[in-house]
Amino acid sequence: MKTVTLKINGTEHTAEVSPRTLLVHLIRENFSMTGTHIGCDTSSCGACTILIDGKSAKSCTILAVQADGTEIITVEGLATAEGLHPIQEGFHLNHALHCGFCTAGVMLRAVELLEKNPNPTEEEIRWGISGNLCRCTGYNNIVKAIQWASAKMQGKELPSTEPVFV
């Protein structure tokens, strides 16, 4: 067994794990944070996306021991006492989810994307979330949600949240 210490959403967590424990299992099962989902389990779908030291990563393809000492943000860490994170608000107002299975992963990927590129083009958004598969929405409302969050985070005029039929 190995001791792993992680700072998750600002709080330190320690666990004794077998080296073969995957990071996503440590987060979900040892630390009971089940917002991070397991979709394909083959690093294709992005449902397990979290931020490790600020970078989006697929936690189904990382060993818990590899992440020892890192700072992690999961979906549980997005909202604050003041309310939802702009990306969560954007997803809510723009109907950017149906079943919600991919949502946590897409939002965390979008958080890193907007951190590095606060005002992305639609193409940059679509390329930026190409590692996250959504089987419900067709992505249009996800793109709108990220554009909405981008405007909100920069204090710009907020785009319409009216549905667009294509």
Binding site: S43, G46, T49, K55, S56, A57, K58, T61, I62, R109, E112, G128, S130, G131, N132
Partner: peptide, 9 residues
């Protein structure tokens, strides 16, 4: 290569 999450790792 892959996608951004894969390229980060």
């Amino acid at each position: 290569i892959g996608d951004i999450q894969v390229r980060n790792a």
